[in-house]
Amino acid sequence: MDKENMLDLFREMVLIRHLEERAAELYQEGKIGGFLHLYIGQEAVASGIIAAREPRDRILTAYRDHGVAIAAGIEAKVVMAELLGKKTGTSHGFGGSMHMADVDKNYWGGHAIVGSHLPFAAGMAFADQYREEDNVTICFFGDGATNIGFFHEALNLSAVWDLPVLWVCENNQYGMGTAVKRASALEEIHKKADGYGIPNSRVEGMDVMKVYEAARDAIEHVRNEGPYFLEIMTYRYEGHSMGDPERYRSKEEVGQWEENDPVGIFRTFLLDGGHAGEDELNRLEEGVIDEIQEAVKFAEESPEPTWEDLINTVYVEEYRDEQWPR
């Protein structure tokens, strides 16, 4: 990866971090409703994986999706507008925090029923295979999703039909508040892929360059040989969602992981490797702070979606019922 790409990647991770911190504040102020799942601590996963994709490769993820959206190339202001429920948001204000997508960026959501999007990934990869297009579908999901039926049915189908899917398990150690070992028969989650004959590996997820390199190889494998499974070891610094009392883990544990901050690790890497100077990185960070400020302003000033907008999203074709949607 050249210097310019590295600095873009650094800026993107910092942008995710700041966006999430600002979102938490807006949530406390009551400007964001519903659930809010922050990506703080996991930035290197989405950024590292997506840096290795071609634009034609599809991306899907679960409900912790703002960071993935940014990494997929969606503008911060559009993410922010969705968080505020505005018409200018990714999903016109109908999806909220958990349901962001942008088909033009090949980012297919943002899905909040645990595991439900894994079958979509199989189906999208099938569509590519059907049309003889060599796209890869990259499907992110949490450790918690590997215990649900969708996971097993989708992995099995991807192997039986030899579908071009990269399965990416973001193992952040807890499914909500339940530790992996308390919920999963196998603690080394990537080994579940062995049950379906899918090659797999486990990767340190706090170092974005390691994630990137693993993703590059894995995507190459998928494009040429079929499905692959990556387990990325990571950690979320904030609660599962806003208002999580975090009774299931200690401050010491969180503190240990914070010493391995993916943004800090990458900063050190860039400085030590002579890829960038302090001033350069600080300037990038200041630019991010301005961008977030503008994003909030854009979101706050954006129009609300209308009732008419909502009705128009439900069906494509004529809907003959005089009472509907009364």
């Binding site: 894994l118 979509f120 199989a122 189906g123 999208m124 569509a127």
Partner: peptide, 9 residues
Amino acid sequence: GAANGAAMA
């Protein structure tokens, strides 16, 4: 689920 995905695609 895969039909949903294939349809979206």
